[in-house]
Design a protein around this nucleic acid. Structure first.
Lengths: 195, 195
DNA sequence: ACTCCACTAGATAGATCGCTCTAGCGGGAA
DNA sequence: TTCCCGCTAGAGCGATCTATCTAGTGGAGT
């Protein structure tokens, strides 16, 4: 049967894509199993906690993957300013390549469940925190004081997430470019102040 | 019967609140009429286009209301930098006052429908555009070149929207404060460059 | 008084929701 | 072989979804 991913992975991957595109409440489990080419019963075998467990797993797995992507880009870049620029640029390219469907893997879920499902809300908070910590650590390594680094990480991620919303609604990467430029110059300013 | 709002307005108001809190797909029409204390049949009398028309009306009405709020704050503030600061501060206060339920009136819908419902996507794009135009106009009036003003408006709104996501997920206003400070200093820098 | 129509009121249809259930398949251990 | 069990497979349950339907109400216009 050639290269075969496990049924569980296919369900997870299909869920991640559908949740990202149509939202958590907007995605049906029947649809998930169809897209994953998996029997419906298998879903509840691998995810006995049902839709909520599936949602939580998607949030945490996608979050970890996105974190690794950030780490990879940051490691490749010569400095943090370039890293920030590369990240925004890459986000814009992904948006265009996927016809504005693939943006932040968890933003839609985060907004949907923030006031309705505490388990999933905590999962999104954990993921956001892991991203913020990673970014702040990078800024500190570049010589920026911890408190300022935390601030930079928060405004960097806010700008990125907000730009995703605007880009998808406007079907344009202009917001991503503007937000990226602003974030980069903010980091640059923080660096020159230190040096 | 005292002060009585019309049935249509009650349905619109209840929908806006529920969509904002639980999302578009996550809100049922039965729930809307219950919360609005309106008979179910009245919903389809006032909104013959069903849920989609209700969604579009909510987006456009909420969008216009939010625009007026921005205009009001900007008119009250002594300068644009203060206006930006006031807006972020006000957003943070609203989040706390509503237990992190009331943020951007259309962000959740915008993300949910961006890839699934073109009518609603266009409505959110129109609203975002109206906000961006208003902000850019204010920046131009303060002496910033048009192209730069547009960039500032984009990064300002991106920061605000993204901060809403992070604040609701983390249940903290820290992202709003960081994003607000960054946006304010960016506008300040744009002003000093001109002057 | 009579008509008319905007509006209220809610039962109900048909589809889909998340979830549970039983049955059967297939490969490794005894 | 025989047993076992992780996994596949999908029918079906009760609830809920959006939307439609008919019936009734109340007040303005003539």
């Amino acid at each position: 049967m050639g290269a075969m991913t496990s049924t569980k992975d296919r369900i997870l991957y299909a869920s991640a894509e559908l949740f990202r595109r149509k939202g958590y409440t907007g995605t049906g489990l029947k649809e998930v199993t169809t897209q994953a080419q998996a029997p419906f019963g298998s879903l509840y075998h691998h995810f006995p906690g049902g839709k909520e467990q599936l949602g939580e797993d998607v949030i945490r797995v996608s979050g970890a993957f996105f974190l690794q992507l950030f780490v990879f880009i940051a490691d490749e870049a010569p400095d943090v300013v370039t890293a920030v620029q590369d990240f925004f640029r890459g986000a814009g390219e992904t948006l265009v390549a996927t016809d504005y469907e693939d943006a932040c893997p968890i933003a839609v879920i985060a907004l949907e469940v923030a006031s309705t499902n505490e388990t999933l809300r905590v999962a999104t908070a954990d993921v956001f925190t892991s991203w913020l910590d990673e970014a702040a650590t990078r800024f500190v390594a570049a010589g920026i004081p911890a408190a300022r680094a935390r601030e930079l990480a928060l405004s960097f991620l806010s700008a990125l997430e907000g730009a995703f919303i605007l880009c998808r609604a406007l079907r344009s990467t202009e917001p991503m470019a503007a937000a990226g430029a602003a974030a980069a110059s903010e980091v640059r300013a923080a660096l020159t102040t230190v040096a």
